[in-house]
């Protein structure tokens, strides 16, 4: 359904060019969830913004292929993209969006807005549609008459999810959709997202830094490091048998509640994307470093449904 190939998004800053997204490729089939995980600054949100074409002004280069159901979105003009694609076919739940609801408008109107402005619905029909969507996200229909300050954090987050669903997209990008919420509220929202996935056949790109949370939703996991996907594979493969040294360490660093194990950590810091290290970006922190890792960036190696970016797995 979605096919992203060699996506590049670089920003221009005073210090130099930031290689935020540097050759990202993946595919998502209908109804599938891919988790995009990695530490802060690894390019997860930039990847999402690039797909949604929400670009800041300081873009240095933006290229690659983004195909949605066979149509190359990169060829579309901005106007056409926002008219036909954005929100209708791909929508997004932004990080912290629940805090950017308009405080002086009733939430029902805020959710209905695109229907009224772009689709020419009248208020009554639009609100009827809104109530249907509110039911999907498990909010009472009376909520349409409320103002954001009357709602709790969890309810606001559901409103934001409703906004993403109102135009009936088949792919929803979720950028840290539960990051500011309490664990019990978070679990409730994750339950709703799981239900929606089943009942509407939605595909998700689920962006998170939290691996336990990723396992709640992901069929497939892409691990990003320094603007690149270093490992991509089925959730079972990534969680149970990680191959890339970074993935392996990242999983070993997650505290678990029910099992006891010694945690590991990754010494050093994530790479500077303005002056990235030569060769493999992970080499300064990697325990299995070879000479070649410092000199040449590795090429992706495919193993069945898995793809790894590491010299350890390169076939000679």
């Amino acid at each position: 359904m979605l096919n992203v190939e060699n996506l590049i998004l670089h920003y221009q800053t005073r210090r130099g060019i930031v290689r935020a997204v540097d050759g990202v490729s993946f595919t998502i089939v209908k109804g599938e969830t891919m988790a995009l995980v990695g530490e802060s600054g690894c390019g997860k949100s930039s990847t999402a913004n690039a797909i949604m074409r929400l670009l800041p002004r300081n873009v240095a280069s933006f290229s690659g292929k983004v195909e949605l159901e066979g149509e190359d979105l990169m060829k579309l003009q901005d106007r056409e993209f926002s008219r036909r694609i954005a929100w209708k076919r791909i929508s997004m739940v932004f990080q912290g969006a629940m805090n950017s609801l308009n405080p002086v408008l009733r939430v029902g109107y805020q959710v209905a807005e695109p229907l009224i402005i772009h689709e020419g619905f009248d208020m009554r029909h639009a609100l009827k549609k809104v109530m249907e969507v509110m039911e999907l996200v498990r909010l009472p229909s009376s909520i349409v008459d409320r103002y954001p300050h009357e709602l709790s954090g969890g309810m606001k987050q559901r409103v934001v999810i409703a906004m993403a669903l109102i135009m009936g997209p088949s792919l929803v990008i979720l950028d840290e959709p539960t990051s500011a919420l309490d664990v019990i509220t978070q679990a409730n929202i994750m339950n709703t997202l799981k239900d929606l996935k089943k009942s509407l056949g939605l595909a998700y790109i689920f962006i998170t830094h939290d691996l336990d949370l990723a396992s709640e939703l992901a069929d497939k996991v892409a691990v990003m490091y320094g603007g690149k996907i270093v490992e991509l594979g089925k959730a079972e493969d990534i969680f149970e048998d990680p191959r890339h040294p970074y993935t392996e360490r990242l999983i070993a660093s997650v505290p678990t509640l029910r099992t006891d194990r010694k945690l590991e950590f990754i010494p050093g810091a994530p790479p500077d994307l303005i002056n990235p290290p030569t060769g493999c970006l992970f080499h300064p922190r990697c325990p299995f470093i070879h000479e070649i890792c410092k000199k040449k960036p590795p090429a992706p190696v495919e193993e069945g449904e898995r793809r790894i970016l590491c010299w350890l797995y390169a076939r000679s």
């Binding site: 309490d182 679990a187 336990d212």
Partner: peptide
């Protein structure tokens, strides 16, 4: 009990299960 039930451990089987958590807020 609810707090502990709500916390996932990284397990790819999680995605097939719905967590039993109470509704409501603090």
């Amino acid at each position: 009990q609810a707090l502990i039930d709500a916390i996932p451990d990284p397990d790819p089987k999680n995605r097939f299960n719905i967590r039993k958590v109470p509704a409501g807020e603090a």
